[in-house]
Amino acid sequence: MNSSDRGEVTPGRHENIKAVPVRHPGRWAGALVVIVLALMLLHALIYNPAFEWNVVGDTLFDSQILHGLVVTLELTALAMVMGVLGGIILAVMRLSPNPLLSGTAWFYIWVFRGTPVLVQLVFWNFLAAIWAKLSIGIPFGPEFVSTSTNTLIPVFVAALLGLGLNEAAYMAEIVRGGLQSVDEGQTEAAHALGMSRAATLRRIVLPQAMRVIIPPTGNETISMLKTSSLASVIALEELYQAGHNIFSRTFQTIPVLIAVSIWYLLLTSILTIGQYYIERYYARGANRTLPPTPLGRLRNLFTGKPVPSGKSDVVPGLEGGGHV
């Protein structure tokens, strides 16, 4: 009886092993259900006359809609700048050993996070009911310059104050969480080298905290884009209010709302793509491999095999973790 009869492999002899891929019937069944539902939705969108796609196309580039779109973009950008800068200042105050600074920051966050943004928008719009005019001068002394509150705070500025100051409270907690995610040894080492507290924050702590700060900040920016529609309550003609003015006149509510929603979806998609690549940029120093690209995710969906994350970012010869 030789070794092959006993089931043993003779040294130097190669056996051809046929690899059988794992079957995933449930995955294909789920994909089939999704395709059927998508086709049903597409059929309803095309053949339901209530959608009035010709009206949607005309409304998309209506001058009133485009003006509202510009106002929405301006309001979102300025409110986020105010929110991010205010959030950084408040976060630093919260982490300050000075109890007056930390207490003031805590009170601000408590007030602005504890009241609805809609209430804050209306409050800023009617600030003249409390102070008819605002002035600059010596505290408890003479006034040098004064002007009407309604003149100084028009509708756009009221919306900006309501959204920006509210956003600062949320950004303060996001930034504080990011700063506290950096090991304290980094700060101690910077102080040992003679760096000031401000320089340590700017050059050591904040760059490392960005990988924690960026994802929720991107979400807040997308949320701000949509929350800006609340400014319609104080009659600011942003994107939604522009659409509201049109369908109040034409009574074509559904087509106009679809056109407005298309613009919101387009802007949100652009912000999402920008957030994705910013996250990839700040993830380089923290992860051995970068997050997968959308093309890699799509390829993984059809092949069922994991795609190496950030493969194009690996420097040849540094596969152990070196990136460009």
Results as ranks from 00 to 15, higher is better:
G57A: 11
Q180G: 01
T115P: 00
F123G: 01
D62C: 08
M1F: 11
V117Y: 04
P25Q: 11
F51W: 11
W263E: 09
V92E: 11
A190P: 10
M80C: 10
I234Y: 08
T187G: 15
N125M: 14
G103W: 04
I213C: 01
A199P: 13
H191E: 12
F51V: 04
F251N: 14
I213R: 10
I246N: 02
G26D: 05
R284K: 13
N287R: 08
P21R: 08
F112K: 02
A77I: 06
A79Q: 07
S96E: 02
G243Y: 08
A31S: 07
S102E: 00
V212F: 12
T151M: 11
Y282H: 03
G137L: 14
N287G: 00
V315F: 13
P154I: 07
E167L: 03
A19C: 08
P255F: 06
V155C: 03
F112Q: 03
H244I: 05
I65K: 12
H43L: 11
S96F: 14
I35L: 15
E188G: 13
S223T: 03
G285R: 04
A79R: 04
F123V: 01
T303C: 10
L127K: 08
P116R: 14
P207I: 06
S196Y: 01
L236K: 04
V9F: 12
V55S: 00
N54Y: 13
E8Y: 00
G162E: 10
P207V: 02
Q252P: 00
L127M: 13
V36D: 09
S63R: 15
E188T: 14
Y277N: 15
G177F: 00
P139T: 13
I273P: 10
F251K: 15
D58V: 08
I262V: 12
V117L: 14
G114Q: 12
F144V: 06
L78A: 05
T151L: 08
A172E: 00
H67M: 02
L101A: 11
D313P: 05
G322D: 07
A38C: 14
L161Y: 09
S228Q: 03
P142E: 08
R197H: 13
D62K: 15
L95E: 04
A192Y: 00
G185E: 01
L37M: 05
S96G: 07
Y264F: 12
L60W: 09
F126S: 01
A128P: 09
E15L: 14
L206V: 13
T268A: 03
V111H: 13
M93D: 03
G185N: 05
I153C: 10
Y282M: 01
E74S: 05
E184L: 00
A209M: 14
S146G: 13
I258W: 04
V55H: 06
Y47F: 15
E220R: 03
N166R: 06
G30L: 10
I136R: 10
L225V: 00
V119R: 01
M195E: 02
G12W: 06
G320P: 04
E184Q: 05
V117P: 13
Q120A: 01
L118F: 11
E74W: 03
R202N: 01
L73G: 09
V55R: 04
L161C: 04
M1A: 11
T151K: 01
G26I: 02
V145I: 15
W28R: 13
L85H: 12
A286K: 08
P25I: 09
V56S: 05
L85R: 04
A91W: 15
Q186G: 14
L42R: 11
